[in-house]
Simulated scan of single mutants.
Amino acid sequence: MRVAPVGGTAVQDHVALAEIELCGELIIAASAADEDRLSQESIDEVLKVAEERADASGY
């Protein structure tokens, strides 16, 4: 059996960590929502889609 060495050798996948954070934010928003499902607009708001599009277009 192989065991990972102890002491700060963990590799971090920043993309995976960002995805986990976004999923967590969606879960929190869904649990706080009054409706059974989040609307597409609510999901876009949680994920800050409009902000990303504005940053990408330079406006």
Score class of each variant (00 low, 15 high):
residue 1 M to L: 07
residue 1 M to N: 04
residue 3 V to Y: 05
residue 4 A to I: 14
residue 5 P to W: 00
residue 5 P to G: 10
residue 6 V to Y: 14
residue 6 V to P: 15
residue 7 G to N: 12
residue 7 G to L: 09
residue 7 G to T: 04
residue 7 G to M: 12
residue 8 G to D: 14
residue 8 G to E: 14
residue 8 G to K: 15
residue 9 T to V: 07
residue 9 T to I: 06
residue 13 D to A: 08
residue 15 V to E: 02
residue 15 V to T: 12
residue 15 V to K: 04
residue 16 A to Y: 07
residue 17 L to D: 09
residue 18 A to H: 04
residue 18 A to Y: 05
residue 20 I to M: 12
residue 20 I to V: 12
residue 22 L to F: 08
residue 22 L to T: 12
residue 22 L to H: 03
residue 22 L to N: 07
residue 23 C to F: 13
residue 25 E to A: 14
residue 26 L to D: 14
residue 26 L to V: 07
residue 27 I to N: 09
residue 27 I to R: 12
residue 27 I to D: 03
residue 28 I to G: 05
residue 28 I to V: 04
residue 29 A to R: 06
residue 31 S to G: 08
residue 32 A to N: 12
residue 32 A to F: 14
residue 34 D to V: 01
residue 34 D to F: 04
residue 35 E to G: 06
residue 35 E to Q: 10
residue 36 D to I: 01
residue 36 D to E: 10
residue 37 R to D: 12
residue 37 R to S: 07
residue 37 R to E: 15
residue 37 R to P: 08
residue 38 L to A: 02
residue 38 L to F: 07
residue 38 L to R: 02
residue 39 S to D: 00
residue 40 Q to M: 10
residue 41 E to A: 04
residue 41 E to S: 15
residue 42 S to G: 04
residue 42 S to P: 11
residue 43 I to K: 05
residue 44 D to E: 01
residue 45 E to I: 13
residue 45 E to H: 09
residue 45 E to Q: 04
residue 46 V to W: 01
residue 46 V to Q: 12
residue 47 L to H: 11
residue 48 K to Y: 01
residue 48 K to R: 01
residue 49 V to Q: 00
residue 50 A to N: 05
residue 51 E to G: 00
residue 52 E to F: 03
residue 52 E to M: 03
residue 52 E to P: 14
residue 52 E to N: 10
residue 52 E to H: 05
residue 54 A to F: 01
residue 54 A to G: 13
residue 55 D to L: 01
residue 56 A to N: 12
residue 56 A to G: 09
residue 58 G to N: 11
residue 59 Y to W: 08
